[in-house]
Design a binder for these strands. Structure first.
Length: 112
DNA sequence: CATTTGACGCTCT
DNA sequence: TAGAGCGCCAAAT
């Protein structure tokens, strides 16, 4: 059961819990699903997500407080910026955003 | 099968 | 603030 499919669904479940207007990091999502140290795999899971999607994938950024920009994303990095701006998250041209202020603190007591 | 590439992140210069 | 080095590991070549 510990294959790629279940890993992916775990990632999507966690990402779906990020509130509107708040942010989470790849490493944070990895920790949340019990995959410490596998931030990179979280990135791959999101890359596999077909767009558009109901999953708020755009709320996941890197630990440096920036959108991970890459030519290989074929524009999804810029779409991410637009989606964030659309929900009130300020993002500059370099992809920098106020991570400290908007970081999502998962509440253990939610969704019992 | 060997190597390289990444939507990553942490430590040390 | 900027890189380099390393650990991580799926996917691509």
């Amino acid at each position: 059961m510990g294959d790629r499919i279940s890993f992916d669904s775990s990632v999507l479940d966690a990402v779906s819990r990020i509130p509107r207007g708040r942010l989470a990091t790849y490493g944070q999502i990895a920790d949340l699903i019990g995959a410490y140290g596998r931030a990179r795999q979280v990135g791959w899971a999101l890359r596999r997500l077909p767009l558009p999607s109901e999953v708020p994938w755009h709320r996941v950024v890197n630990a440096q407080g920036r959108i991970s920009m890459s030519l290989s994303r074929e524009g999804s990095d810029w779409i991410q910026r637009e989606l964030l701006l659309a929900e009130g998250v300020p993002v500059d041209e370099e992809g920098r955003l106020p991570l400290k202020e908007l970081l999502w603190r998962p509440d253990a007591m939610s969704g019992s």
